[in-house]
């Protein structure tokens, strides 16, 4: 059954011209990728656009695909690049944080993390449904610093390991581990009454 195939095998089949392989691959990962993008950009409409762009990039880059790493690592790396392009166009202040964090150690990132604007100001739709649990989770995620949120989402939605997250984000393994730890502490604090 093609549905039991690994992501990499499905992508190779699609590269060879099997459109059904792509359909299976897409249905398997459409939700996680969309949620990753939606949580990161904070707008459903923008998430739709980004989601479509990322999958079209996958379609166009199929000939260059080689199963050197997990498909999800490759997919989320593409998504992250597209997200940075989006920040470059629509949220340059966030882009500055991404660029600054590239050379920064996770332990030294507390300064700019504290300076981040409140997520509620950027995501009105999250504020609008504050009382729903799911919305509270979204809000808690939105309140995370982008890089911590990114690591958390890649781990939860992409099921990536520390090494894979490090590869996808271009950071070191220890930096990724620290960001993950900070993210979990903050989320637990925000959602304590729900746990």
């Amino acid at each position: 059954m093609q549905t039991d195939w690994s992501d990499e095998r499905l992508m190779l089949a699609y590269r060879a011209g099997d459109a059904n392989a792509f359909t299976i691959l897409y249905r398997r990962h459409r939700g996680p990728l969309y949620r990753y993008l939606a949580r990161q950009c904070g707008s459903a409409a923008e998430a739709d656009e980004l989601h479509q762009d990322v999958w079209l990039k996958v379609v166009h880059a199929r000939r260059q695909y080689e199963p050197l790493a997990r498909f999800l690592t490759w997919l989320f790396r593409i998504a992250r690049h597209r997200l940075i392009d989006h920040y470059r166009q629509h949220a340059r202040h966030l882009l500055a944080h991404y660029e600054a964090a590239a050379d920064e150690d996770a332990e030294g990132s507390e300064d700019w993390i504290e300076r981040l604007p409140a997520a509620s100001e950027e995501m009105p739709h999250v504020l609008h449904e504050r009382h729903d649990t799911a919305r509270r989770i979204s809000l808690a995620l939105a309140e995370l610093p982008p890089l911590q949120r990114e690591v958390f989402l890649l781990a939860e939605e992409g099921q990536l390991t520390l090494e894979e997250i490090a590869a996808a984000t271009g950071c070191g393994r220890e930096t990724t581990k620290s960001r993950m730890r900070y993210a979990l502490v903050r989320l637990r604090k925000s959602l304590q009454d729900l746990l």
Partner: peptide, 17 residues
């Protein structure tokens, strides 16, 4: 975590693929 893309987006992507 139940957010998903719309059916229109799904159809558009699959058609392009």
């Amino acid at each position: 975590a139940r957010d998903e893309p719309s059916v229109e987006i799904d159809e558009r992507i699959l058609a392009a693929a």
